[in-house]
Amino acid sequence: MGLHPQALTPDYRSSRLRSPNQKLLSLPPGQGELTGPTFGHGLIGPNDHDLIINYAAPGAAAIGEQIMVHGHLLDENARPVPQVLLEFWQANAGGRYRHQKDSYLAPLDSNFGGCGRTITDNDGYYSLRTVRPGPYPWPNGGNDWRPAHIHFSCFGTGWAQRLITQMYFEGDPHIPLCPIVQSTADPKAIEGLTARLDMANTEPMNFRAFRFDVILRGKASTLFENKLEGN
């Protein structure tokens, strides 16, 4: 079942002019919706999943709290989604993106680019290493701050499973205040987007681990009964 946000969520002001007025047109999935691109492990460099060093000068590292984020990519029936591409992007530890249009006063970190990628293994498992991103202010309601978050881009086995979402951190006081988080409206959905501190996989004197699973729509055989609801 899907708990996706509606297109128009007025408290998130950017959605006002970027949400279709018309209903989505439903169609049964065809060959093109059930298939999708695949990417081999050959694509992925050894440091692509490690945002601490993948943009850093040799021997240098990004500034910030070092963390590992890991979990499984699954479908709604809890089946692993193996061998698919995940991409990540985020602000640096001060809440600043490496982007021409981000003029927030927190400084750039010359050793932090802010993007990474990996391919899930045969169990749908993935992991990345990064620095915990900072919260940042954004122009919306006058004094809105995003909770710390990592953007996730996920492929499935079929085109209809394509998903972009965001991962938040357990306990962040900005989660209930953020109009983007609250676009989902359902507490279960927000819980599903919140990574949990994982002490069992935290490396003593090294880094903390956070666990975050991503759940995609069902695969081919079940797509039809898993149509988006309320659209």
């Binding site: 899907g2 709604e76 809890a78 982007h99 953007h151 676009s183 989902t184 599903g192 759940i215």
Partner: peptide, 22 residues
């Protein structure tokens, strides 16, 4: 066991960093 789909969230203004970084 069924699980709830991860809810979509906007790609935001900086999706190019993650998907077309160059």
């Amino acid at each position: 066991m069924t699980r709830f789909q991860s809810a979509s969230q906007t790609a935001g203004p900086y999706v190019h960093i993650g998907c077309t970084p160059n």
